[in-house]
Amino acid sequence: MEFIFKKISSLSAAFILVLLTAVFIVLFLYAKPAIKKYGLHFIIDPRWDVSVPIKEKTPTKTNNIKSQKNKNNNIEVSDADVLAALGITNTNAKTETIYGGLVPLVGTILSTLIAMLFAVPIAMGIAIFLSEISPPLINKPVGIAIELLAAIPSIIYGMWGLFYFGPFISHIFGGSSVSLLVAGLVLGIMIIPFMASLTRDSMNTTPNILKESAYAMGATKFEVIKDIIFPYARKGIIGSIILALGRALGETMAVAFVIGGVFTFPKKITDPTVSIPVVLANNFAESSGMSLSALFYLALILFILSFIIIFSAKFYFLKNKN
């Protein structure tokens, strides 16, 4: 019996590893054409779905429909477009479509960063309030409310962001009602309940007798929280932050509504831009060939980015103390 149990549990653990590798391999295989064509330059190339003439000059009669219907109302206009607009009939030039991942990559990192900067202090505050300050009478209902908020599907946060929160923010900070800032804040709001309830749970694992010992030394409530509860629950708290970070990095629906979905660099925090999951969700249906492969390349980058961030966070915070 024990043998079987051991076998099953180690099989389940192995399954996770297999799954992880399988996902990685699939992403890699589909992304391979794009990886071959653009290499690592993909990461620093801000152009997406932009037609450029091919360097070699072989005058053939091909029309450049592609460059004319530049769907992504991109400010950067390709050379071919300029020439066409000027009436210079260089329409013989061959064009190719370029895909680069810099804009969504930056959008993902910045929106997540804004979300974390906004969410961590508030979530910690809520957790401290619930575990150490609020009377039991308030504790229960607020705790339940937080758990309900954490369970709301992200698309609802997105809709709320689009119709209410975005206009509200643009009213205060100016700029567009869909923007990097709105996306970051909606993401932040979405992960706050989740982070707060996990953090509260780990703070609650601090034994009463330990807290009492600190009070018995003449510590104040603030000192007990800072010196005893936080260090004691450190692992759980950091774990909850990392889990929330992972959710923010990969969040699609909440962000899709409020980030704008345009392939431009945000010059200000209130400008619209795009993030990797949003690009994937918006473009998958209509993509094939190289554009599909480029999407897989983006997905692979997101996968590796999450991996690196979460691993370095774990390594940095959980290993290097004492």
Binding site: L210, S213, Y215, A216, G218, Y232
Partner: peptide, 27 residues
Amino acid sequence: IKLRQRVGMIFQKPTPFPMSIFDNIAY
């Protein structure tokens, strides 16, 4: 706080704080 500094307390179970030995004593 002043009272608790004048009247110390030891509990049923050891309660080392989550910090170094030195920091515990200096707390």
